[in-house]
Design a protein around this nucleic acid. Structure first.
Lengths: 200, 200
DNA sequence: AAATATTTTAATCAAATGATTAAAACACAT
DNA sequence: ATGTGTTTTAATCATTTGATTAAAATATTT
């Protein structure tokens, strides 16, 4: 058996190459628009290998999607319940981490939101962002600071300001380079704006 | 010829039924995920009629997309260059009109943005939102008020706060009813927040 | 009512696409 | 080197899907 020898070239193993290609093509084009042949070509391997390794397009997609959801959650989770951070620090860290993530993965928001809309049932279980936020210290802090403002409304704005430019990039920004520059500046901008929005 | 008699039942004419169905299915599922058979079924007509009336799926799609773009533009255009409106009035009207439009057409943003990303070339010509805003009185007023803030950054935030909830609805809000209630409240909220963001 | 034009349908085609299969190429232990 | 198990490929299948066609049904004109 060559089970243990897989590790030697894990980075360039066929399996890994397919995953990398699938990640790229799926996030760029979405599930339905992606043909298994696209992924095979991008991987530099034959079409049959996809089904040999991952059984089906659907299975491969589930793998990639789980990866991407994990990526998005891993930004929120460590922050919203960290009792060592003030409200301001939470907002700043959240925005900065998200923009850092999205500059490297600009297709992520439209991809994930699009797939959720295309198949809401498939995500009902996995996505309890609402429940997750519900009892967070982030929400508690928001309630204390501004008891008159619905926390979810504020969070929606914070996320909207942060994610929306990556969703509407094609429309709003001229080219990739100026976009990245603006996104760097944007970290501080959103931080300031969010604080202003909380003033009485 | 029966050319002039078409008017008698324009609302329920086959052509109109197909357009209505196409509008619904396309905006819900996007171009690639939509099958011409879906539209035919939704119209209550036979598949062959689609190609008889509209020649191809692509042509029908172009028609619907032009309609939707028009819808989105028609909110912005009359406002951003209206010299009778103050900066605050512009922002308030923009937000209110957009939320009104989106409550009735919640699929619009994700649909349009998704299709633009799927085929950027096809929109390069038609979408000069940037140029359109560039010389608007809206931008001029923003520059006067806050010369230190890039206007596009502010507009991105305004649009993000307004559009994002409709894009992330599935994730952030529990059910359709509470969502609509929150969106009504949101008009005033964004208005207030936008003004706060402009304070020095 | 007959003739003509328009609308609608059932049946079918061709291309695209996800998946399978059987055989070839390769790696590695003995 | 040989044999054994693993990896990779070319060829092929079955289904889906956009589109077409020829004929039937319906409406309109004369």
């Amino acid at each position: 058996m060559a089970k243990n020898k897989e590790a030697k070239n894990l980075d360039t193993s066929t399996e890994e190459k397919i995953i990398q290609a699938a990640s790229k093509v799926f996030t760029q084009k979405g599930y339905v628009a992606t043909r298994t042949r696209d992924i095979a070509e991008e991987s530099g391997i034959n079409l049959a290998l996809l089904n040999y390794y991952f059984r089906s397009k659907e299975k491969l997609f589930q793998l990639i999607m789980a990866e991407k959801l994990q990526l998005l959650f891993s930004v929120i989770l460590p922050i919203v319940n960290n009792d060592d951070l003030t409200l301001e620090e939470k907002m700043e860290t959240l925005v900065e981490n998200y923009i850092n993530l999205l500059v490297d993965n600009p297709d992520l928001p439209l991809f994930v939101l699009g797939e959720i809309k295309a198949n809401p049932e498939g995500f009902k279980e996995r996505l309890q962002v609402r429940k997750l936020l519900q009892n967070s210290s982030f929400i508690r802090q928001l309630r204390e600071r501004r008891p008159d403002v619905e926390p979810l409304q504020f969070i929606t704005s914070l996320l909207g300001m942060t994610l929306f430019p990556f969703i509407a990039k094609q429309i709003l920004f001229a080219d990739e380079k100026t976009f990245k520059i603006q996104m760097e500046k944007r970290k501080a901008l959103i931080g300031r704006w969010a604080k202003m929005m909380l003033e009485t």
